[in-house]
Write a protein that binds this DNA or RNA. Structure first.
Lengths: 142, 142
DNA sequence: CCTTGCCTTGACGCCGACGTCAACCCCTAC
DNA sequence: GTAGGGGTTGACGTCGGCGTCAAGGCAAGG
């Protein structure tokens, strides 16, 4: 299988495959014309990379998984180095989610405060008489 | 006040201030020497920008807040355009947190599965006799 | 005079994961 | 022949928010 077919079967592009090869992640054999040649095992490696990429793993973080598969193990995460990456990623995700959640609460608080301030100004504009809202709902007599 | 002092008082760098000016976010007056000159209001604008940046807002997203302050409003979020940005950011944060949480669960599941597989292989290695774990804890008779 | 320190503009570097273009080769079909 | 649809390498562009030089100006202090 050549580069175009592999890219299509993995749902990616030839540029990406050449990039992976340049990074030493997915080397390719060559045929007589100098064209890159891949087999089904390469497709497995590539799918492993893509799955992790979709999870937000850096390219370098996929390397242990790829090497694990290439070493003949049944799964990319059958090796201790892959588990280390999993655990590190979990910790990163927890930290990030925690930070984002804190920011989310801050922004929500700011939004609520700003909307309250806006509404109070609106009410003030409707009742230009006095600054204290003392249940003068009639509003006719001064 | 000149650029170095403003940067120091806002906890940022002169490079950053020049960058903001180039983006049209924080223009500066000039003194006789061509040096940038700022006042206390500029410090308020800058602090507004920095606060939002720390929350993860893009620079462009801080623009409504800055313009709101420059228009004379008491707070950067006293204008409807700022509230729109708040709400959009909240939605983005919710979406992102949701995605990250889903990824987190996937990774946790993968890790658990991989660890289970590893442990089963370890047990198998300890009992090379038969593939079925039928309570043969004695392990002495074949 | 010279150094020090602050300022100026301009321009390139960085990071990651590619996209995009240029110029060229190879095989096949018409 | 020639057009088309693969492939090759090389190199620059992208995105944001600056960092980091380089080369020079201007004022105060010794």
């Amino acid at each position: 299988m050549r580069i175009g077919e592999l890219a299509a079967r993995a749902g990616t592009t030839t540029r990406t495959l050449r990039y992976y090869e340049a990074r030493g992640l997915l080397p390719a054999r060559r045929d007589g014309n100098g064209h890159r040649t891949y087999d089904e095992d390469d497709l497995r490696l590539l799918r492993q990379i893509r799955t992790l990429q979709d999870f937000g793993f850096d390219l370098e973080e996929t390397r242990p998984f790829v090497e694990c598969l290439r070493a003949g193990h049944p799964e990319g995460d059958s090796c201790p180095a892959s588990l280390v990456v999993y655990r590190r990623k979990l910790a990163e995700l927890d930290a990030l989610i925690g930070q984002l959640t804190a920011v989310r609460e801050s922004v929500a608080g700011q939004l609520a405060r700003a909307e309250r301030a806006r509404d109070e100004l609106a009410v003030e504009a409707l009742a230009p008489g006095g600054p204290e809202p003392l249940c003068e709902l009639g509003g006719r007599e001064r």
